[in-house]
Computed example of a mutant assay.
Amino acid sequence: MRMSEPTMYDTSPAACWTDGFRTANGECGAVLYGEPAMEKVVFEAGRSCHPAYEFRISSPGMAAVGGYGRITDSRTGEVISTWTDGHGTWARRAFASRADQVIAHELLPAPGRTVDTTLSVDTALDGLLGSTRFTTRATVSNGSGYLTLRRVGLSGCGAFGYEGITRVVAFGGSILASGTTLVVIGAARLLLLTKLDRYEPSSTGWFFPALRTALAGLDNDYATLFARHAAATPA
């Protein structure tokens, strides 16, 4: 794994999102925290980096036996977490792309193991003020899963809203939609690609088609996406 000149390093998972590790590109970002059995990603939208909603990666059978570490690359903003169990080393890595304006997150199992997890979204974040309501959808199309959220909120500054969509690509496994969640079974690796945008609260329609089209056109390879991001990142 790449780990050049880290700016942050920890040997235990962050317990709350305000202590999590952040990756951002100036337009969108993500804060990663939580145990391997329930990793949580707080997506941020806009230059103000306002928390939009939380993405949850639930893997109940997962437990870090030892060697946990989470690191942020000082130049690219890539966040990498690793841990070991009786099967070997597991890894997860994520970055907010400058080249494609997408948040890429890859889950890599230990040798001979698979990624088995349930993906969901929520907006109940500690520290967020005002009332909110949100709608979620989970669908599977052309082999990819799509988990979407539309959030409307009220704060002291008035109404605000966000829309987000995550494309789920499972390699060698299957994806099933179950209510408002996606269930991944037996994946050799898992790639999550997320795009966010703001919307006008007065709108009655969902603006996901443009975001979904953009996600569908992206490369499915984390390394390829990262190379494009690194090339667009100031030295």
Rank of each mutant, 00 (worst) to 15 (best):
T139C: 12
S58A: 09
Y199T: 09
T180Y: 02
S74L: 07
D10M: 15
T89K: 00
D221T: 13
A104F: 13
T84K: 14
A64Q: 03
R75Y: 11
R56C: 09
I103M: 02
R151G: 01
A96V: 03
M38L: 15
W206N: 11
P201S: 03
R47C: 15
R92M: 15
A231Y: 02
H87F: 11
K195T: 07
C28K: 11
N142F: 04
G143L: 02
R70K: 15
H105M: 07
Y162C: 13
S155F: 05
G26W: 07
E78S: 04
L190D: 02
G164Y: 01
G69C: 10
C49A: 15
A124M: 10
R93D: 05
R56I: 11
I185K: 11
I185E: 06
V140T: 14
H229M: 02
L129D: 15
M3N: 07
V169S: 03
R47D: 14
L218N: 04
S4W: 05
V41E: 10
T224I: 10
F43Y: 06
Y33N: 09
G26L: 12
A64V: 08
C16I: 13
A99H: 10
A24V: 08
L191Y: 03
C157A: 15
A188Y: 01
G143W: 00
L225P: 02
K40S: 14
E35S: 07
R198T: 14
D85E: 04
K40N: 12
T118C: 08
F55R: 09
D116T: 14
A216S: 11
L191W: 03
S48L: 14
P13K: 01
I175W: 00
A231K: 10
L225S: 03
G156H: 11
Y162E: 14
W90S: 08
P60I: 05
L154A: 11
S144R: 04
L119K: 01
G112M: 06
S48E: 13
R2Y: 12
G173L: 02
Y162I: 13
R137P: 05
M8E: 11
F55N: 05
